[in-house]
Amino acid sequence: MILRAILILAVMASSFSLVTAQQRMRRAIDETYRLQNEERLLNLEWSQLQLDQTLYGKHSLIDASARQIGMRPVTPDRTQFLSAGPATGATR
């Protein structure tokens, strides 16, 4: 009689835990999909920003604007060259 009661309780406990586990899994899956979607959107935004970065940081654009305000490319006679350090040997 006692054994039977214990077994019945055990079956009930296991079924409750099954139900909650299933519910937890569903929530987790939903969360996964939601986060995956968010990741995708963020990735797209990142791509857009990367494109903008290249577009607005184009060398030709910067060069043109720099010349507009009277800047000039450096020439060797106005440059101090530093060697890489004693470990790699001084460059000629």
Binding site: L44, S47, Q48, Q50, L51, Q53, T54, G57
Partner: peptide, 15 residues
């Protein structure tokens, strides 16, 4: 994506 050697994007897809 395709980037140049400095990591600047030179080809990329957008929706």
């Amino acid at each position: 994506k395709i980037t140049d050697r400095n990591g600047s994007v030179v080809a990329s897809s957008l929706p």
